[in-house]
């Protein structure tokens, strides 16, 4: 596997309970090459979101390792980890989490706020280009309340791409959308990741969305099945 991809090895995550600790992830291992996408499926409560949060460095594993672009993010201090996440990872959630007080363009620019050195002008040019790419060039100055559900999610995708991440994580990105919008968003997300040469990891219940990814695997009782290659991938 290329050093620029995503490598997960023997990942475990436990939660303390009254009795035995609850083991959500039990030795999960997988890898994804840059420009490739992996869909992770599984029933509710199987640990999909936990896995995504650990890969996204929002939570730490109990044991095991995660290497993103060849590095182990969990050795970093909190502020360095935030900077790493800002530069390397893009998130798309089921909820769009757009700031209602900001326009579509400003929402796309939110991740650039963390970058002191970034030129505001350059960032805005990139953001407008991304909005154009997701088909919202005309809606750049609209507030979230003035956008449809699909449009909001497209803004969220643009936001995830603004810092050109090497890892794009999507948690049920089409969960709140109808079928037509869902496939449109899925195509947009996968195409954008592929074009950017980023690893795309999607957690979803949707078989239709999973089918669009390069590989699919299933998380059951904390263990991951071997990724099944999509025909022609």
């Amino acid at each position: 596997m290329s050093a620029a991809g995503l490598l997960v090895r023997d990942l475990t995550r436990e939660y303390a309970t009254r009795g035995e600790p609850l083991r959500v992830l039990r030795g999960v291992s997988f890898s994804v090459e840059p420009g490739r996408s992996l869909a992770i499926m599984g029933p509710s409560g199987c640990g999909k979101s936990t896995l995504l949060h650990i890969v996204g460095t929002l939570a730490a594993p109990t044991s095991g390792s995660v290497r993103i672009a060849g590095g182990d993010p969990f050795v970093l201090a909190e502020s360095d980890l935030a900077r790493f996440r800002n530069a390397t990872i893009g998130f798309v959630f089921q909820e769009h989490y757009l700031l209602p007080q900001c326009t579509a363009l400003e929402n796309v620019l939110i991740p650039t706020l963390a970058q002191r050195a970034s030129s505001a002008h350059d960032a805005e040019v990139r953001a407008r280009a991304l909005l154009a790419r997701v088909g919202l060039a005309e809606r750049a100055d609209h507030f979230p309340a003035e956008l449809s559900g699909g449009e909001r999610q497209r803004v969220a995708i643009a936001r995830a791409l603004i810092n050109a991440p090497t890892l794009l994580l999507a948690d049920e990105p089409t969960g709140n959308l109808d079928e037509e919008f869902a496939s449109e968003i899925a195509a947009l997300l996968i195409g954008a990741a592929r074009d950017a040469g980023a690893v795309l990891l999607i957690v979803t219940h949707s078989r239709a969305l999973a089918a669009l990814c390069d590989a699919v695997c299933e998380l059951r009782r904390g263990r991951l099945t071997e990724p099944g290659q999509r025909a022609g991938a």
Binding site: R83, N86, P111
Partner: peptide, 20 residues
């Protein structure tokens, strides 16, 4: 809190988020 979570998720250092 979700807004704050989003800021942190996109890599805004907690210190910066708190400052905001």
């Amino acid at each position: 809190s979700r807004e704050v979570g989003l800021l942190l998720a996109v890599g805004t250092p907690p210190r910066v988020a708190r400052r905001l």
